[in-house]
Design a protein around this nucleic acid. Structure first.
Length: 857
RNA sequence: GCGAGAGUGGCGGAACUGGCAGACGCGCUGGACUUAGGAUCCAGUGGUAAAACCAUGCGGGUUCGAGUCCCGCCUCUCGCACCA
């Protein structure tokens, strides 16, 4: 017989303990059995599509997932309570390399490994109590998903958006596969950080560049996205306006095309630099006295790995080809160099070199003793070629530039471009940094590319009726990490769909970013089998109203998904171009100053935390410790604080209910819910607190996405309720009924109900349990989000600061309806204010409504 | 180098359009209740002897009033990076 003390130990009654390990599974089962979160399209009901980036089934959920999904669940439940028809699905980005590595290491089939992981992680997510509609679960390695993705590939093929070409590609020697440009970070593989090397390979590409302009223009419509993500996308697309200029070759046919954005400097172009990979390298250097040296140079540079070659501190070097071309403006003959810093991937792979006004060209010219020619002079001082120590890249006045002399270079830009177009020297062009998306992967565990190579017909797409091309399940994984597919005759050998002769199947699989480019549409009709998705369902749910995920996909996944959506639109399959209306990029979970990772040994396992504190506490902590878009420091102490707070809420609600239950008369008044208009005393104080809290929490969640401050508002309310000591107040209420008693009881109930409702999207289990304890009906989540009344929330008395010369010297309370003059006069006669004014004449009195009075003397 | 963001107590973080700097939580200190307290409740907690003064990276400015706006620096984080 132990007494649990409430409010200084006055209540000698056994109070039920808060036991998350009991109540959390309880409510999870109830929600599950009642199908609480499965949704249908309801005509006319306002929808809300809340999506979190689906996980790769790596084995276990980590804290970053838990943070991501806790934010999502909060927002989903909040919208549900606001009356939206909320789609909140979950699935698995299930193809990928780790499954193959596991196959080699543990001798388990990737399909089994993946499925086991999915089963385990699904249980982990269920234990967190997220409001997913599990009926819509999608796994991208399933036959049906693969089928419709291959179908989309073929549609794109028909549209000319898919092509195969031999090109230098990014090869990751550790993953044994090719990577897209977006998947190379600082010259290293995005997944394993191995240095990427260049390989010449024949590869399948998706023509994302055909949408470069549209993707860029669409950026301006992404008003619900973080600005930096939009900027990153814009930079990645990298549009630049310029002009393509023809430099005729001297002593032979043809010309060298260059792309430049600085046509104003063309009169200073006194040599030419071309990339070592440039197709004219061979021809131009033929017959040169140093042909062998040129070969050696080209070979050396092209064999350097990407990271090394593109790093800033690589010295600029080059070699003269022996050939010349003509500067079309000066008509001078200028030498053509091969230079290591010129990129074949950008522009035309050739640049006109203007050493006086481009730092790279300057360094190059200095090294090889090429003379300089200034064509732009700064407005004030006069540059001299022989005194220059660096290139002058600022604005200025044109000199040495024929008929353009004397013009501001910024003004000359267009005039020169026009002149060149008129004289057939060049064409205005737009150039993009964006490259086509290489999707071939030399891997097994991915979606097969549905293509057949026929010795008669060439490249032939698989027939639609033969979809999907299935991965063979009987496979041995070679220990060298290479794909087993090319060595499987049953898979490779097939007959040509066109002529029937024996043919070979494509053995590359698709980049897994293809799956994540349309899964959000698949959720709308996850078992649909007539096409990738049911158009009506997609039109009902899409676009995603709120998308939540890590910043690491700012370019990769988000760009691909935008591209795919545009393709679907052009295929007539959807009506919209942008898939994600609002985007929230959540920060990382940090421990001891570093991102949680196995190698750092600073991982906190969600399972352990849930076991110790319960899912609600973990969720609350992740939402409370930082705003969602900032990095979050994991703190064991902080978690305890959240656990403590939930216990406090629990005792508060149960304490009130105990007091009510022990007094039949209170119970009666308590449930009547009738509020007299002119509330005074307790009820007034309580109602004001309640409505102020509702107001702040609602704004914090809905408008500002500041969940941490929303929680702090609720904490303030709880603290305030504790100082009132409601159980004691209730116990001391008179036996006979009165209007005052009714009002007070109503206000207590309103406060308690509101408190639980405000907490519910953060901590749904304890909220549901307290709701039940408070005698309310299941389910809390059928109840609408509490509204607030501004009149009730309004303070009658306002505390005003009084400043003298901008420094706070006193404060006073005034009635909310006081006039300006009343307030000013009241401030002037304040004793402390008089001392500070000290008989000096008052120059000015500034009044800021509801804030302060400032007296200037 | 370019672009974006940030710099506030011992710590995580508050402060909407300029208007009580440090909400809320952690930690710490004291007290209450206790056989006990690492449970719970109450109080305190930026600095300094101070009711005054000083404090939001540094230096200027605008203003009655600046964490917030402007100018110039410093530092950190992120993205892009020889892009012609």
């Amino acid at each position: 017989m132990r007494s649990v003390c409430l409010y200084g130990g006055t209540v000698e009654e056994q109070t039920r303990q808060y036991e998350p390990s009991f109540i959390e599974p309880k409510w999870q089962n109830i929600w599950d059995q009642k199908g609480k979160y499965s949704v249908k399209e309801v005509c006319g009901k306002k929808k809300y599509y809340l999506l979190e980036m689906f996980p790769y089934p790596s084995g276990r959920i980590h804290m970053g997932h838990v943070r991501n999904y806790s934010i999502g669940d909060l927002m989903a439940r909040f919208r549900m309570m606001q009356g939206y028809n909320v789609l909140h699905p979950m699935g698995w980005d299930a193809f990928g390399l780790p499954a193959e590595n596991a196959a080699i290491k543990h001798n388990v089939h990737p399909a089994k490994w993946t499925q086991d992981n999915i089963d385990y992680m699904r249980e982990q997510l269920k234990r967190m109590g997220y409001s997913y509609d599990w009926d819509r679960e999608v796994s991208t390695c399933s036959g049906i998903y693969a089928k419709w993705e291959q179908w989309l590939f073929l549609k794109m093929y028909e549209k000319g958006l898919v092509y195969k070409k031999e090109a230098p590609v990014n090869w990751c020697p550790s993953c044994n596969t090719v990577l897209a440009n977006e998947q190379v970070e600082n010259g290293c593989c995005w997944r394993c950080e191995t240095e990427v090397v260049a390989e010449q390979l024949s590869q399948w590409f998706l023509k994302i560049t055909a949408y470069a302009e549209d993707l860029l223009a669409g950026c301006d419509t992404l008003t619900g996205w973080p600005e930096r993500v939009v900027t990153m996308q814009k930079n990645w697309i990298g549009k630049s306006h310029g002009i393509e200029i023809d430099f005729p070759l001297a002593d032979r046919e043809g010309c060298l095309k260059v792309f430049t954005t600085r046509q104003d400097t063309i009169y200073g172009a006194i040599f030419m630099s071309i990339a070592p990979e440039h197709p004219l390298v061979e021809e131009l250097s033929r017959g040169s006295s140093q042909e062998t040296q040129i070969r050696a140079f080209v070979k050396r540079v092209t064999s350097q790995d990407k990271k090394f070659r593109s790093s800033e501190d690589v010295i600029k070097e080059g070699i003269f080809t022996g050939a010349y071309c003509i500067n079309p403006m000066t008509k001078n003959s200028i030498p053509i160099f091969i230079a290591n810093f010129v990129l074949m991937e950008y522009g035309t792979g050739a640049v006109m070199a203007v050493p006086t006004h481009d730092q790279r060209d300057f360094e190059f010219a200095k090294k090889y003793g090429i003379p300089l020619r200034i064509v732009i002079q700064p407005p004030d001082n006069c540059l001299k070629e022989e005194e220059m120590t660096q290139a002058y890249t600022e604005e200025g006045v044109m000199v040495n530039s024929g008929s353009f002399n004397g013009l501001k270079n910024t003004d000359a830009m267009n005039q020169i471009a026009d002149y060149m177009e008129e004289h057939g020297i060049g064409r205005k062009t737009v150039n993009y940094r964006l490259r086509d998306w290489g999707i071939s992967r030399q891997r097994y565990w991915g979606n097969p590319i549905p293509i057949i190579y026929c010795p008669e017909c060439g490249v032939v797409p698989v027939d639609y009726k033969d979809l999907p091309v299935r991965l063979p399940m009987e496979v041995d994984f070679p220990p060298d990490g290479k794909s087993p597919l090319p060595n499987l005759p049953d898979f490779v050998n097939c007959s040509c769909p066109r002529c029937g002769s024996s043919a070979k199947r494509e053995t590359d699989t698709m980049d897994t970013f293809v799956e994540s480019s349309w899964y959000f549409e698949r959720y709308a009709s996850p078992s649909w089998d007539k096409s990738p998705f049911d158009r009506d369902a997609v039109e009902y749910w899409m676009p995603v109203d709120q998308y939540i995920g890590g910043i690491e996909h700012a370019v990769l996944h988000l760009l691909y998904a935008r591209f795919f959506t545009r393709v679907l639109k052009d295929l007539g399959m959807v009506s919209f171009a942008e898939p994600f209306k609002n985007l929230l990029t959540q920060g990382m979970v940090i421990k001891d100053g570093a991102k949680m990772s196995k190698s750092k040994g600073n991982i906190v396992d969600p399972d352990d935390m849930v076991k110790r504190y319960g899912a609600d506490t973990v969720r609350l902590f992740l939402l409370f410790a930082a705003p969602p878009d900032k990095d979050l420091d994991w703190s064991d102490k902080g978690v305890e604080g959240c656990s403590r707070f939930l216990n406090r809420c629990w005792r508060l609600v149960l304490g009130i209910m105990n007091a009510i239950k022990s007094r039949p008369d209170l119970k009666k008044g308590f449930s009547m819910a009738e509020m007299p208009a002119d509330a005074e005393g307790l009820s007034k104080r309580l109602r004001q607190l309640t409505h102020q809290t509702i107001r702040k929490v609602t704004i914090d969640i809905e408008d500002r996405l500041h969940f941490n401050t929303a929680i702090s508002r609720v904490m303030e309310m709880v603290n305030e309720l504790y100082t009132i000591d409601l159980p004691k107040v209730l116990a001391g209420m008179p036996a006979e009924d009165s209007m005052q008693k009714k009002a007070d009881l109503f206000a207590v109930r309103e406060a308690m109900r509101s408190l639980i409702l405000l907490l519910s999207p953060f901590v749904p289990h304890i909220a549901e349990e307290m709701w039940e304890e408070a005698g309310e009906e299941f389910s809390l989540f059928d109840h609408t989000w509490p509204g607030f009344d501004l009149d009730i929330a309004q303070d009658e008395d306002i505390l005003l600061m009084i400043q003298v010369n901008g420094k706070i010297r006193s404060r006073m309370t005034v009635k909310a309806d006081s006039t300006d003059d009343e307030i000013k006069n009241a401030a002037m006669i304040d004793i402390r204010v008089r001392e500070w004014i000290n008989e000096r004449p008052v120059k000015k009195v500034i009044l800021v409504k509801n804030r302060l009075v400032n007296i200037v003397v």
